[in-house]
């Protein structure tokens, strides 16, 4: 299973919540109207703007779609080696 890091750039996030709608198991809005990263709906520790997790290929596809739907490109996805998968550089 691929291991990825999902990070929300709080400064860019405007609270459009498109990631939450597309990938609700990975993202949720907090009281600051910013998107936080979850681990498949589980919250093993405090909610966070950055999280590393193991995902299936289909989960990765959904998370990517959530990131792609963000109008401010505030969601960044990195692979295990730290290579940025999205947005494309």
């Amino acid at each position: 299973m691929p291991k990825i890091t999902v990070k929300v750039d709080v400064d860019l996030c405007i609270g459009a919540a498109s990631c939450v709608t597309i990938a609700p198991e990975t993202f949720q809005m907090n009281n600051e109207n910013k998107a936080e990263v979850l681990d498949r709906g589980l919250i093993p520790d405090t909610p966070s703007y950055e999280r590393t997790m193991e995902v299936t290929d289909s989960e990765l596809a959904t998370i990517m779609m959530g990131a792609e739907s963000c109008p401010t490109l505030a969601v960044f996805i990195f692979d295990e080696e730290g290579k940025q998968l999205f947005p494309e550089e």
Binding site: I14, G15, A16, A17, T21, N33
Partner: peptide
Amino acid sequence: KLVSSYSTNALGLEMI
């Protein structure tokens, strides 16, 4: 199937 939403902010006041 979508509950559409729009969010904005004016000088710190969040409006959704």
